[in-house]
Amino acid sequence: MNLSILRGPQARLAKRKLLAITALSLITACSPPPPAKVLADTSNLAILPAYKSFSLSSEKLATAANSFCSKPNTEQLELVRDHWRVAVDGWSGVQNLQFGPLLVDNQAWKIQFWPDKKNLIARKVEALLRSDEALTEKRVDDASVVVQGLSSLEYLLFDPKLGVLDSFANAATGSRRCALLIAVSGHLHSVANGLHDAWRPEAGNYVQIFTQTGEDNPEYPDDSVALANLLDTLVAGVELIKRDKFERPLGLASSEGQAQIYLLEWWRSQYSRDAIIANLKALKNLFMAANGYGLDDYLSKVKQHGEFSTQIQQHFDRSLTAAKAIPNSLFSSAEPRSQAELIQFQTEINELQLLLKSKLPEALGISLGFNAKDGD
């Protein structure tokens, strides 16, 4: 536009329009394309905070274990148990991620050994306690994953027979139980902190690998591969809840199924239902990139499936409501097929799984990959 031929108000109006167009062009040029924004916001607003939360909760658990063992008493034991529960919530926030440092070198197994079909946790932990070896973080790190992490700590803190104050205060056995409690909780924090560091920009910077896709990126040659990992995480996470954390142990996987309650996650602490709730919250948070630009926005604004995006969010909420309505621990659920709250949760989680596995890939235009739980 030739502004030199315009005078007075016309010139001023034309200049304002030109400035507005220029500013809009600059903003558009500086804004990342939608898929890149999904990856950036999901990483920075959902994944990194989840790893940080797990690291901090494991640190507080280790501190509480040390304080308790300096002078074992009932109040301090309950405090350690509370910190263990918070750490489980933190772990539940990253447990289902199907990519990144968590999959390297058995990191997930170092945090949780489950399902324990042969009661290996009790056998291996007790064998280590009976040995003459010094119970240090190094010894725990060298040992089997069975005696590491939250599963081993659950046995030490909640076993119906041995997870009691007398086991730690007993002059003959208490010192070794405390030594193992301190060593395992310290080792857990090292693993959790290492995972957080692996993602942080200031350390391992996996966040850059995940968000800066391209031909030179060996893991993510384009955005669609990274987005597929988010999709896989949502699907695998809900399937793990539905099948392994709920239907199989309660005998609801088929009409002839028999309950196997000792396959429940966290059965000793009776924290199974609470961990499912934490899982669902984390998966919904991942879908929405917390309050950022997530898959929900991409689905709505780019793929023009706003109603479907809202539907997924509503089904997450309905599954959460149904899980919270279960009146007691899953471990103490008698006759699961006749308990209305359990059947309602099964209905809701089935519908959520159907949306994520059968309809979301097509809506996003992304193929669902093979995850570690498929065919299990």
Rank of each mutant, 00 (worst) to 15 (best):
L3A: 07
G8M: 01
A11Y: 11
R16F: 06
L19V: 04
S25M: 15
T28N: 14
A29P: 09
P34Y: 03
P35G: 08
K37G: 00
L48F: 05
P49A: 03
H83C: 10
L102A: 06
L102I: 05
N106H: 09
N106W: 04
W109G: 15
K117M: 12
K117S: 13
K118S: 14
V125P: 05
L129Q: 07
L129K: 06
L129V: 02
S131D: 11
A134C: 09
E137G: 13
E137H: 02
G149T: 01
E154C: 02
Y155R: 10
L157W: 06
K161L: 13
L162D: 14
T173N: 09
A183N: 08
H187K: 08
V191T: 06
N193A: 13
Q212A: 10
D216E: 12
P218G: 01
D223T: 12
D232E: 11
L234M: 07
K242I: 04
R243N: 12
R243E: 10
E256M: 13
Q260A: 14
R268V: 01
Y271S: 07
D274I: 05
A282S: 10
K284F: 06
K284P: 03
A289F: 04
Y298Q: 02
T321N: 13
I326R: 03
L330D: 03
L354A: 15
A372D: 14
